[in-house]
Design a protein around this nucleic acid. Structure first.
Length: 575
RNA sequence: UGCCGGAUAGCUCAAUUGGCAGAGCGCCUGACUCUGGAUCAGGAGGUUCUAGGUUCAAGCCCUAGUCUGGCAGCCA
């Protein structure tokens, strides 16, 4: 039986037996390809990497990539590296390195001791470039960026050779060394691979390997003034690290021939690149440039604005790492470049929070209710279940008194059909409290309802009627004098169009911003949440899941709505 | 222009070498009878884009066609 071993320093510990264990690994086209590679002996272990460029915050699309890279390594008992692809100093920053590390850690991917940086291999890459020059496979080109793009040809016509293409090896070596030494200004020269200017694949038309950039690198400082291109660097980084499967998104597909070409010319260890489609979600944007514009333009509060699809934003919104992992598992990996609806992610977080979130009662739009037959100064503490899905979560005491707040939506003076909540003359249950009956509607001079006068049935304490009487609705409530006012932020989609780029003539995606993407309101909440710390998650009964925002403080609690509960009444009411 | 992909339930997507076409949401029904428009369980729902072909057997392989998406930077 074939044994698959792992470890790149000869610690060939046995992890799987192909015929049996790998069959238990979920199937998708990438895992299948890897399984096949192992079975055919093309590789004898699995080693992946997640290679972000530290120039932006990670978003939900990266979470999919992380879960493919890390998930596959884990499934096959292999290794996973977190590697920063920091080859372009002009856009990169330590701030992003730190944020990305936090995000990947939060997601739950484990890179063990392999936190790596592509820039740490610059010396090796340089030596390899010299080697390619010596082999006549690379040359220094003096064409400007503009000239280069002109001579590259078009989608329909071949490019033309650079006049510098046939420089001697000696001259190339000399020029390249001087490029490195800093003798030339930015953009004056490039090092290019000598491949084929007539290739139908434009990526193969003598792509550049190094450009001159007199810019300090966030990690390497001023050591370098020439920086490698993605195409040149990426395969080398994978090779150096002993990566077996270099998994990347579909836009790199046409780069694969170049990835392979460099490694073949060098004759070094050669990983396999496999591409998968990026995650797409409607009503949002996922590009670094647009994130920056949204933040700098003040359209959102920051990279961690709860409306943003960034991991920082989703985290602040209340999404858990587990719900995101669940989401990634559910959508799987296929070759189709598909758009996944938000409700898939929302279901995932509801599923998890339904099982784990502490229940609490909060009234968003209060209507005052006075229990006319309830003693003036009496206060009772009723037992409320913390989580009906989890008995071990126990119970808590909630104060009940003569004056209460109910949800405005839970009362209709003239009820529409199928409305089972409070209405004049009808009896309903107050959750964990009593049955109450609406006797009178008090209005001000403008005809606006100011309060409801109800009676309660003392025999129904706790919510049960000894005579077996039934009510159709159970409403949440708070005691008016015990309730704490808190700030609540209700979020909606950031853009009004599925594809924000689908804008009117002369307009861009910013014109599609949803003006109602956030609604700030005050809720009256039961006192048990006093002292809730940022990040704490609750279900506001009958409403949704909320978490305490980072701006929250002891005296001024702030909640973000992660997601509402499913609400089919909203649809019935609309119809 | 080249390369790659997709077309499957009302919607968004799955389907390991060809072997009874699945999930989530939506819809319908039921259970719980203190979230009763929450939650849970069950059910209905498909001529797999079209026309041919190979095969005992085709969503999958082959041929032709129609529609549709992505990529093509001195970014990664």
């Amino acid at each position: 039986m074939d044994k698959i071993v792992t470890g790149d320093e000869g610690d060939s510990r046995e992890i799987h037996e192909t015929d049996e264990k790998t069959l238990e690994i979920p199937s998708d086209f990438i895992r299948d390809a890897i399984r096949d590679d192992l079975a055919q002996g093309r590789f004898d272990r699995v080693h992946t990497r997640f290679p972000p460029e530290p120039n932006a915050y990670l978003h939900i699309g990266h979470a999919k990539a992380v879960w493919i890279d890390y998930g596959i390594a884990r499934d096959f008992g292999g290794k996973f590296n977190l590697r920063f692809d920091d080859t372009n100093p002009t856009k990169e920053d330590q701030e992003f390195v730190d944020a990305i590390i936090e995000d990947v850690k939060w997601l739950g991917a484990d890179w063990e001791d392999r936190l790596l940086f592509g820039s740490d291999y610059f010396d090796q890459m340089y030596d390899w470039a010299v080697e390619l020059i010596k082999k006549g496979k690379s040359y220094v080109c003096d064409l400007s960026a503009e000239e280069l793009s002109k001579t590259r040809g078009t989608l329909t016509s071949p490019g033309i050779d650079s006049p510098y293409r046939n420089r001697s090896v000696e001259e190339n070596l000399d020029l390249f060394a001087r490029m490195k030494a800093g003798e030339f200004p930015d953009g004056a020269r490039t090092l290019r691979a000598k491949i084929d200017m007539a290739s139908p694949n434009i990526v193969m038309r003598d792509p550049f390997m190094y450009r001159i950039r007199h810019t300090e690198h966030h990690r390497q400082g001023a050591k370098w003034c020439i920086y490698p291109s993605y195409d040149w660097a990426h395969g080398l980084e994978d090779s150096i690290e002993g990566v077996t499967h270099s998994l990347c998104s579909l836009e790199y597909e046409i780069h694969r021939p170049l990835y392979d070409w460099f490694l073949e010319q060098l004759g070094v260890y050669h990983p396999r690149q496999i591409e998968f489609p990026r995650l797409k979600l409607p009503y949002t944007v996922m590009s670094k440039r647009k994130f920056i514009e949204l933040v700098d333009g003040g359209f959102v509060e920051g990279y961690d604005d709860p409306r943003m699809p960034t991991l920082a934003g989703l985290r602040r919104r209340g999404y858990t790492a587990e719900s995101i992992a669940r989401f990634c598992r559910r959508i799987g990996i296929s070759k189709a470049d598909s758009v996944i609806e938000w409700h898939v992610l929302e279901d995932c977080v509801r599923e998890e929070l339904n099982a784990s979130a502490q229940r609490v009662m909060a009234v968003m739009n209060p209507i005052k209710v006075v229990l006319t037959n309830y003693p003036e100064d009496q206060v009772e503490y009723v037992d409320a279940i913390n989580n009906p899905e989890d008995p071990s979560a126990g119970t808590r005491k909630v104060p009940f008194s003569r004056e209460l707040y109910l949800e405005q939506d839970d009362f209709r003076e003239v009820p529409p059909p199928k409305f089972f909540r409070l209405t004049p003359g009808r009896e309903v249950r107050l959750r964990y409290g009593y049955f109450i009956k609406c006797e009178e509607v008090v209005k001000d001079e403008n005809g606006e309802i100011v309060e409801l006068r109800c009676t309660y049935d003392p025999a129904t304490r706790g919510g049960d009627s000894p005579d077996g009487r039934k009510v159709k609705a159970t409403l949440h409530w708070v005691s008016a004098k015990h309730a704490i006012p808190v700030e609540v932020r209700l979020y909606d989609r950031l853009f009004v169009k599925e594809d924000p780029d689908d804008a009117e003539e002369g307009q861009d995606y910013l014109s599609n911003l949803n003006p109602e993407s956030v609604q700030v309101t005050t809720a009256h909440i039961e006192p048990s949440v006093t002292g809730a710390q940022p990040g704490a998650r609750y279900q506001f009964e009958r409403q949704g899941y909320f978490c305490v925002d980072k701006t929250s403080s002891e005296g001024n609690l702030v909640f973000n709505r992660t997601v509402s509960l499913k609400d089919s009444w909203a649809k019935i009411a609309k119809a």
